[in-house]
Design a protein around this nucleic acid. Structure first.
Lengths: 229, 229
DNA sequence: AAAAAGCTTACAACAGCTGTAAGTGTCATA
DNA sequence: TATGACACTTACAGCTGTTGTAAGCTTTTT
């Protein structure tokens, strides 16, 4: 399957040259030319890799980098003419997967691109939690250098909670996630499954985080947040 | 928990300087000073990251890189004075996670080290196959942007094969992997499990690779390797 | 052609996950 | 502080998917 790369670069000449080079190397390229809501556009494109310039009109590339990594976790390769050490450190700290300075030789760029893509192979549906990762398909949970496959129901619940941090999730919805349509709600069965999830989380050393909201449902508390809302 | 870094560098001065820098940054450092069986030594150390020089006495650093990536999948950061583009490409192709040239500023090195470590968080036991990844603990198989949890026996077999690419693995050993001690060998049961593994591999679109060696055992053929050695 | 090695398939035993049900604990309000 | 509603625990039996068994088939070698 052809890998898709999004190019975020405001200088048209460089952008086109980049796109051509990548296409010649067998990638499908999406060019971003307007930079008012870059992160959102990227989310819609859902590429396999983002190549990002730091000097963008309006919003800074750093901001985009942070948003992309926080939101979707796409791999990000920063390609910029800013060669200050500080910029590099900042980009890496924000989660960039690679940092290259322009001008950059074709071979090097392509090698790094392929390297980053390879690293991310098969990891496109890892959900990021607070100190752990959850595979959406298999419900494999990665934490503290170990992995465990959660039973299906526990995985579904955890997945749902991770998508709604710090929000109250109603029982109806939880039941819906477990048994499809939420027409027949078995609060007890839900309760049992929640207990089981809590237990395996405790066994794995994750901080307890599923808080009951009386009469409503449950809320997932992100571990060591400082400020509540 | 303190991360452990193995430094593979033959020049004592540089080695010590590197080690000091890393230790000051809060890592535990293992220095490798003899280079006759580097990959084996690294395996025994089981570090969180390997910093590797390419110009080693005896065996080439490339060879070490390949062995480390094939065997254990530790993250490898190549730090070398060879700044030929060709070297960089080759190292990346062999699976190196990062390539830096000496001299390298402290901040850059530390940033890249922390970046690589972060990427590998919780992924320390992913075995790399030819176009796929296998989680040693859960036998979750990642391929083509999907993941599947293999049944235990199929996982064990695949794991064993991945550790012995292009070698004939005897039936005894395969049985040993499945049922502990290989004292009681049930060739038929083994056969059935192999068939099942082949089937799930075929279903997942992996090229067929388990070749019988008459009277001996089986051999895992690495798909589309160009040059063997 | 026959023997040996390798492979396929169906089936029953088994393990682990799931829902059920009955009972215990906790909280909020009168 | 008594009460009822809600929340939780536990044991158990049914179900699903994995495993070993056994019988028969195919391929290879001599």
């Amino acid at each position: 399957m052809m890998k898709r790369i999004a190019v975020v670069e405001d200088e048209p000449l460089i952008r086109e040259e980049l796109a051509q080079m990548l296409e010649k190397a067998g990638y499908q390229v999406d060019k971003i030319c307007e930079f008012d809501d870059t992160a959102q556009r990227l989310k819609a494109l859902a590429p396999d890799l983002v190549i990002l310039d730091l000097n963008l009109p309006g919003r800074s590339g750093f901001q985009v980098c942070r948003e992309v990594k926080g939101m979707n976790g796409f791999p990000v390769l920063v390609l910029t003419s800013r060669d200050q050490m500080q910029d590099e450190l900042r980009a890496l700290e924000l989660g960039a997967d690679e940092y290259l300075t322009k001008p950059c030789r074709r071979e090097r760029l392509l090698a790094r691109v392929s390297n980053v893509l390879k690293r991310y192979e098969g990891r496109s549906n890892l959900l990021e939690g607070d100190g752990f990762l959850l595979d959406r398909q298999t419900y494999t949970l990665y934490i503290h250098n170990t992995s465990t496959v959660l039973p299906r129901n526990q995985g579904k619940l955890l997945e749902l909670f991770l998508g709604r941090p710090s929000q109250t999730v109603e029982k109806e919805e939880l039941c819906g996630a477990l048994w499809g349509t939420a027409e027949f709600i078995d609060e007890n069965a839900l309760q049992v499954n929640l207990t089981r999830l809590k237990k395996t989380m405790a066994d794995l050393g994750m901080e307890q985080k599923i808080v009951p909201v009386r009469g409503k449902g449950y809320r997932w508390e992100s571990g060591k947040r400082r400020h509540e809302e």
